[in-house]
């Protein structure tokens, strides 16, 4: 914006510059004003639906508000979180069901995200190869992603049906199991079922992100590796994987944040059963079914803190690892 002709005489040039700059600042100021004007509707909307409700959730977690009567809440300090009454501890932090739901959520997130990453990379590698009908396969792979979570949960609930489900039928047909498994009802298998559905639904997302990264890789190092006769598996671990790691890390954090707040799949497949209950299911149950807004808000607040902490830790670790990788 401030470039000027070097051929002009010195005085005329600076005068022109000054005139230009003042006009520049005027335009600039007008533009900055317009920018804020344009941002205001979005900021108001986000304050209304995100900022203020979040603040109110924090606030309500320190009260005994109930769903039917939000107005007359009393401030009760940390009693929703932890309180000692007559030598016994009460509150969320003393509730084994809460800790079980924390464990469930972490277990679910780690296992399903790991599986998604492994299978997502495999699918991406295959889709990156050139073959006839690649577009069709890619479209087919996108289908699970397009199906609403509720619908996929119902579809799998039907396939996993203990008496008439096709999965039990097939497993018994090939002799893996003798008796039908109650996938969604039994404490042992229901988490497995939930993970199965989630992995099925989200492999496409990971695969597509990795595929996008794969397609940007330079071709020449592969040609060099091929000329040198290096085994493809070695090439994958030494060349491909390090190069797609940034994209993979992005996919992992997106998925991890999604998994830590999981609600739909678990609610539809196993409803409020404690053996699969996630933190979100726990919080909503307190809030809506038990009408205890104060307690439910405290659970929501803890969930929020856990996710915020996980995000910060992940970003920190990721940055550190990338730096180390850069140094090496």
């Amino acid at each position: 914006m401030t470039t000027s002709q070097s051929s002009a005489p010195e005085g005329a040039r600076s005068a022109a510059l000054i005139a230009r700059r003042s006009r520049g600042t005027k335009v600039r100021r007008q533009r900055v004003k317009a920018a804020w004007l344009f941002l205001t509707p979005m900021l108001i909307a986000l304050t209304l639906v995100a900022g203020w409700p979040l603040f109110r959730t924090f606030f309500l977690s320190f009260t005994d508000a109930s769903l039917s009567d939000l107005g007359t809440a009393n401030f009760i300090g940390f009693e929703n979180y932890l309180v000692n009454e007559n030598g016994r501890w009460f509150g969320i932090l003393a509730d084994p069901v809460w800790w079980h739901s924390v464990w469930n959520t972490v277990y679910f997130s780690v296992v399903s995200v790991s599986l998604e990453v492994v299978f997502g990379v495999i699918v991406a590698l295959i889709l990156n190869a050139e073959f006839k009908g690649r577009t069709i396969v890619r479209a087919a792979v996108l289908i699970p992603w397009a199906i609403p979570t509720i619908v996929s949960a119902q579809m799998w609930a039907w396939m996993l049906n203990d008496q008439f489900g096709i999965i039990n039928h097939m497993l018994m047909g090939i002799g893996v199991i003798d008796d039908p498994i109650a996938w969604t009802a039994s404490a042992t298998y229901s988490m497995l079922a939930v993970i199965m559905v989630d992995v099925w639904k989200t492999i496409p997302f990971v695969a597509l992100l990795v595929l996008a990264a794969l397609q940007m890789l330079p071709k020449d190092c592969y040609e060099a590796a091929e000329v040198d006769g290096i085994h493809p598996v070695r090439v994958f671990f030494k060349v491909t994987l390090p190069l797609v790691t940034p994209a993979l890390m992005v996919a992992v954090i997106f998925r991890l944040l999604d998994a830590l707040r999981v609600f739909d799949v678990i609610y539809v497949l196993t409803s409020n059963s404690t053996s699969t209950m996630s933190m979100s299911v726990y919080a909503r149950q307190q809030l809506v079914e038990f009408q205890d807004v104060g307690y439910g808000s405290a659970a929501s607040t803890l969930l929020f803190l856990i996710i915020a902490l996980a995000t910060v830790a992940y970003i920190y670790a990721g940055r550190k690892q990338l730096q180390l990788g850069g140094d090496a």
């Binding site: 209304l48 309500l60 707040r261 933190m279 809030l287 969930l303």
Partner: peptide, 15 residues
């Protein structure tokens, strides 16, 4: 965009 939806559930309910 990274918000867990449950975190705003009670506040949003009130709004």
């Amino acid at each position: 965009s990274m918000f867990p939806q449950v975190a705003v559930l009670s506040g949003l309910f009130e709004v």
